[in-house]
């Protein structure tokens, strides 16, 4: 579960973002819709603990992130939060499987090959595990990045425009997989997008 209160952020004195409070329970999904320039990515980065908000607090799994040291922040981010970016990015020199295991390694966990194989099977890219990531199509890459976000069983899954580069078919597939898998591990799913195709897919919505 993730909640936020009174979050605000400013890149400069003229450009200040005030964000609505967010509540997303375990196993639920929340869609945050907004046009470009409304601070969607900024909000996602704040929720992902990549940016420190000017004001306000975030509670993840009952713990405030307010007074965490940079190192603790990195640990919470690695273990509690799974992030999916607009364009899937990977460590290009590593294979798909290694990219999945990297997520375990960087979080300081045991490298769970079985789980990687299970997720690859569930998300339909088993045959691509030994390939380099650039050999995969965009849709496949996005599915791999979902698997990577799930590798550490995070409490929160954050997706930044996960479907904007995908065609309708892949879009539908990715959204369904995201919803199904975050519900399966009981994680809160927050999707930030301007993609109107997702409007009808989520019952909980916030507009920026």
């Amino acid at each position: 579960m993730i909640t936020s209160k009174d979050l605000s952020f400013s890149y400069s004195p003229h450009k200040k973002f005030n964000f609505p409070d967010i509540l997303c329970n375990d196993g639920e999904a929340l869609l945050i819709l907004g046009q470009s320039g409304r601070g969607k990515t900024t909000l996602l980065h704040i929720l992902a603990l990549l940016l420190t908000p000017a004001t306000g607090d975030i509670i993840i799994d009952g713990h405030s992130i307010h007074s965490l040291s940079p190192k603790q922040t990195a640990t919470v981010r690695a273990n509690k939060i799974g992030i999916i970016y607009q364009r899937a990015h990977f460590v290009s020199s590593l294979t798909v499987l290694e990219n999945l295991l990297l997520s375990n390694y960087l979080a300081g966990r045991n490298q769970d090959r079985d789980k990687a194989a299970y997720l690859a099977d569930q998300l339909g890219f088993s045959e691509h595990l030994p390939k380099k990531t650039h050999e995969l199509s965009q849709g496949e890459q996005q599915r791999v990045s979902i698997a990577r976000a799930l590798m550490n069983n995070p409490a929160v899954i954050l997706a930044d425009e996960p479907t904007s580069n995908l065609d309708d078919e892949n879009c539908q597939r990715v959204v369904n997989l995201l919803k199904a898998h975050s519900a399966q591990i009981g994680a809160s799913l927050i999707v930030v997008t301007h993609d109107q195709r997702l409007k009808d897919e989520f019952s909980n919505q916030i507009s920026l």
Partner: peptide
């Protein structure tokens, strides 16, 4: 070229 990769690994918990 790998700036993004570095940021990615940092976001995944690397120091």
């Amino acid at each position: 070229e790998r700036k993004y990769e570095m940021a990615l690994m940092l976001s995944m918990g690397a120091t």
